[in-house]
Computed example of a mutant assay.
Amino acid sequence: MGMSVTISPASEQDAEQILKLQYLCYQSEAELYGDYSIEPLTQTLDDLRAELGNGWVLAARLGEEVVGSVRGAVHEDGTAAIAGLIVHPRMQRHGLGGRLLAAIEMRLAAEQVKRYRLSTGHRSEGNLRLYRKYGYAQVGTERVSRSLSVVTLEKRAAAEAFAASA
């Protein structure tokens, strides 16, 4: 009998597992851009623990193992910033990334969200495909280095969710 993946708020006890998973997941991004100094690979456990206290951090668990995570926070202007969407490589391509994205949007919707915003690298086709599938559209691109441009995508919050929270 197989276990199912559950998604719930991350706790302080999840921080080390999330950091290790983040390090594993961002190896392919670092390789794609030839840059192993990207922030997800240099973030410290203390930095991650501090993030757990700001906004929402969700963890996807298979039993006791954290196999995915996502972070989000709402700014004063009503923009919900979503970041750090990671799924263990062996769990990818099974819909978990989409489930995490939908779960963080639902959590953030209660905070008078007008729009959701996230970013990814311009060569990260899998990420771009996932975000477009969930209704995100490109609103900007910023060149960060010779090999990396960051693509920013947004989608408007559902009118009924915004009205319910107003």
Rank of each mutant, 00 (worst) to 15 (best):
L41R: 06
R146D: 14
T120F: 12
A161P: 01
R99K: 14
A137N: 14
T6D: 09
D35E: 12
V87L: 02
A110G: 13
V150W: 13
E51A: 07
D46S: 10
E31C: 07
G95R: 07
A15G: 11
E51C: 10
T141F: 15
G34E: 10
L100R: 00
N127R: 08
S4D: 14
L21N: 01
F162N: 10
D35M: 03
R129N: 12
I7H: 02
Q138M: 15
D14G: 00
S28L: 12
M106T: 13
G68E: 04
E12G: 05
L24K: 09
G95T: 11
G135D: 01
Y26F: 13
L58C: 03
A15F: 02
G2K: 14
A109C: 10
S37V: 14
V67R: 04
S11W: 04
L19C: 04
A161D: 14
Q92K: 12
G98S: 05
A83I: 10
Y33N: 04
I7A: 00
E31H: 12
E154G: 07
A110Q: 14
E12S: 08
L128Q: 07
E31K: 08
R107F: 07
P9I: 01
T152Q: 05
D35R: 06
V139F: 14
V5A: 08
P40V: 05
S28E: 11
M1Q: 09
S8Y: 09
V150D: 10
Y33H: 01
I18G: 07
E65F: 03
G34Q: 01
A161V: 05
A161H: 13
A60S: 03
I18C: 04
V139K: 06
R90L: 15
G78C: 03
Q112T: 15
G78R: 04
Y131L: 02
G121Y: 11
E125H: 15
A73H: 15
A103N: 07
Q43V: 14
D77K: 01
G72D: 04
I86W: 08
Y36I: 07
A102T: 15
T6H: 03
V150K: 13
G95C: 15
E125M: 09
Y33P: 02
E51G: 04
L21Y: 02
P9Y: 05
R115C: 13
G98L: 11
E65W: 03
G121D: 06
A163V: 05
R71H: 13
G140P: 08
Q27H: 11
G98A: 12
S69Y: 00
D46H: 04
A73Y: 11
V144Q: 15
R99W: 12
A159Q: 10
E31T: 14
G121E: 07
I86L: 03
L24H: 07
A10E: 06
Y134I: 06
A15I: 05
R117Y: 14
Q43D: 09
S119M: 11
H75V: 11
N54P: 09
E142R: 09
V144R: 15
L148C: 02
N127C: 02
S147D: 12
R123W: 08
M1G: 09
N127M: 07
R90Y: 15
A60I: 01
Y134E: 11
I38G: 00
R117I: 14
Q43G: 03
G34D: 09
R123P: 03
V150H: 10
R115M: 06
L130R: 12
Y136A: 08
D14E: 01
A157C: 02
A103Y: 00
G95W: 10
V5N: 02
D77W: 02
R143I: 06
Y136L: 12
Q13E: 10
V5G: 03
S8N: 06
L101K: 04
